[in-house]
Computed example of a mutant assay.
Amino acid sequence: MNGLSVTVLGCSGSYAAPGESCSGYLVRSATTALWVDCGPGTFANLQHYVELKEVDALIVSHQHPDHCAELPVVYNAAKYYMGIQSMRVLATQGVRQVTDVHGDSSDLFGWETISDTSCANVGDIDVLFSRTDHPVETMAMRFDSGGKSIVYTSDTGRGWALSALSRDAGRPAPDLVVGEGTLLAATDDPAIPHLSAAWLAADANDVGARRLVVTHVPPGSKPEDHLAEAGDVFSGEVAVARTGATFWA
């Protein structure tokens, strides 16, 4: 595999729609595999593409269960069934705290705490983090490899912008933005700590993103409506996330 890509392991917002999974993504380069967010159901889907032992790191944006609740399941599978001795986990302090409610996981998980402006390197992928506008500490992230880039917003309200991971950080425009567009014009409310598809699209235009994938669509909302509202605003290629889809930077 050449280039930089993201495969959707789950994309339901807040809870899973029937037959779907919550937030999770597989980011891959030619030599590196990152499991980004591990909401309920994403572990099963991950195994269609890579074995758990082939994952170079788990990266978890925040402690809300729709983004991190598979971690205890991964711990049990890796330690007691798959013979994996250690796994690198980059996450906020809150993610570790809620995971360790089930018991100390440090005998398997090599925890690395991420925070605003943190940087990390995993294989041939560089990762930059930025704290978003969300009720708990939440990290958006940028992946750079081989001259290509993907930005994943995780969850955020209007108080954060994509510029934090592009021009404000001295980085070029992202090739691909995978961004939450949870709300529609009819449900948009600045008091809700999530973005509308149109707001996301305008922000992606502002930083000169080339392609946009709208994700975190809640059950009961029609993905095609989120796609249409983003498409009316975004000047580049736009798609809506669906489980199993792969997008290239």
Rank of each mutant, 00 (worst) to 15 (best):
Q63A: 13
H64V: 09
P65W: 13
D66V: 03
A69F: 09
A69C: 08
P72F: 04
V73T: 14
N76P: 00
A77E: 12
A78L: 09
K79E: 12
S86R: 14
M87Q: 11
R88L: 03
T92S: 07
Q93C: 06
Q93E: 15
Q97D: 15
T99C: 11
V101R: 15
H102R: 15
G103S: 14
D104I: 03
S105F: 02
G110A: 13
G110L: 14
W111S: 07
W111L: 10
W111P: 05
W111K: 09
I114S: 05
S115L: 01
D116A: 11
T117C: 11
A120S: 12
N121E: 14
L128A: 10
F129K: 08
R131P: 01
P135T: 09
V136E: 14
V136R: 07
T138S: 13
M139I: 05
R142Y: 02
F143E: 07
S145H: 06
G146L: 09
I150V: 09
Y152P: 00
Y152S: 10
S154M: 05
A161Y: 04
A161I: 00
L162M: 04
S163H: 08
L165E: 04
R167T: 01
G170K: 12
R171E: 12
A173L: 03
A173Y: 01
P174L: 06
V178D: 04
G181N: 09
D188Y: 15
D189I: 12
H194F: 14
W199D: 15
A201D: 07
A202D: 08
D203T: 01
A204S: 08
